[in-house]
């Protein structure tokens, strides 16, 4: 089974900078693997441990520094990885991003069976890239996935979390899965993992290398654009009271509940 893992480097939620064009500044900012993508990595590696002949390739579209997260994924048990990186990709929205990722997967991974994405990225938080990749490749998709629970004859069984409960679904491969937080934590790499990652040759492909056209990528290939970005009004904290005992504390709260028209 050939698995492609799409992971994204995101700035730490607490540390955000924007460029003059209202696009996200990626260089020189503290970055991490998008949290949901760490569960995507863990899920893929667990599948590889369970069934025979699984090969996992991790990829990311981003600036050269995104090599780091690909190596991190390799240290966690992913077989190999590549970066799709080109100045022309700048300003991509989810349409251009998913087109780029879907095309790169098609060009560089032969007969992919399963693509795993995170449910959403903590920067853009669109949750659109995975389903859009699926649409480009005409693959079925399962979103809000918590766990892969079974595999047999080209059919995966997965558990998904929806608003009103849990669904168990079967999906025929090839397919796209979008991962939520799992009930297990992503593993820490072992020393062999670090060595493998250190020695790994993570290639970087340009727009031409994956046979895309300038009008399909980046700002040009994006139907949407940011017209304005602004800081929302920051919520201001109110009073912090140290009551003399619990009774007084409860009384203050009861008054507040009245003031807030809750009771």
């Amino acid at each position: 089974m050939r698995i492609a893992l799409c992971i994204k480097q995101v700035p730490d939620t607490a540390d955000i900078k924007w460029t003059e064009n209202n696009t996200i500044q990626r260089e020189g900012v503290e970055s991490v693997i998008n949290p949901f993508d760490t569960y995507a990595i863990e899920t893929a590696v667990r599948l590889k441990e369970k069934i025979k002949d699984v090969h996992i390739t991790v990829l990311s579209m981003g600036p050269p520094q995104a090599q780091e997260i690909l190596k991190k994924a390799i240290s966690m048990g992913v077989d190999d990885g590549f970066l799709v990186s080109d100045r022309k990709f700048a300003g991509a929205d989810t349409i251009a991003t998913s087109k780029t990722l879907a095309t790169a997967i098609g060009e560089k991974i032969k007969d992919v069976d399963l693509i795993i994405c995170g449910q959403f990225a903590t920067d853009g938080d669109t949750a659109q890239t995975g389903p859009s990749i699926a649409q480009h490749l005409n693959f079925p998709q399962v979103t809000y996935v918590k766990e892969i629970t079974g595999y047999k004859d080209g059919v995966l069984t997965v558990k998904r979390e929806v608003e009103d409960g849990v669904e168990i679904v079967k999906v025929q491969l090839p397919a796209v899965l979008c991962m939520l937080k799992c009930d297990y934590e992503p593993r820490r790499p072992l020393i062999e993992g670090f060595i493998k990652a250190h020695n790994a040759n993570v290639k970087s492909y340009s727009m031409e290398d994956v046979n895309l056209l300038p009008e399909e990528v980046g700002m040009k290939g994006s139907p949407t654009y940011v017209s304005k970005a602004f800081r929302p009004e920051q919520k201001q904290g109110g009073e912090v009271i140290v009551p003399k005992d619990a009774k007084e504390g409860a009384k203050i709260l009861k008054e507040k509940l009245k003031e807030f028209e809750i009771i």
Partner: peptide, 11 residues
């Protein structure tokens, strides 16, 4: 976006 740290108006 960014977990509510920033608002963006998109066209």
């Amino acid at each position: 976006t960014f977990g509510g740290n920033l608002m963006a108006t998109i066209l």
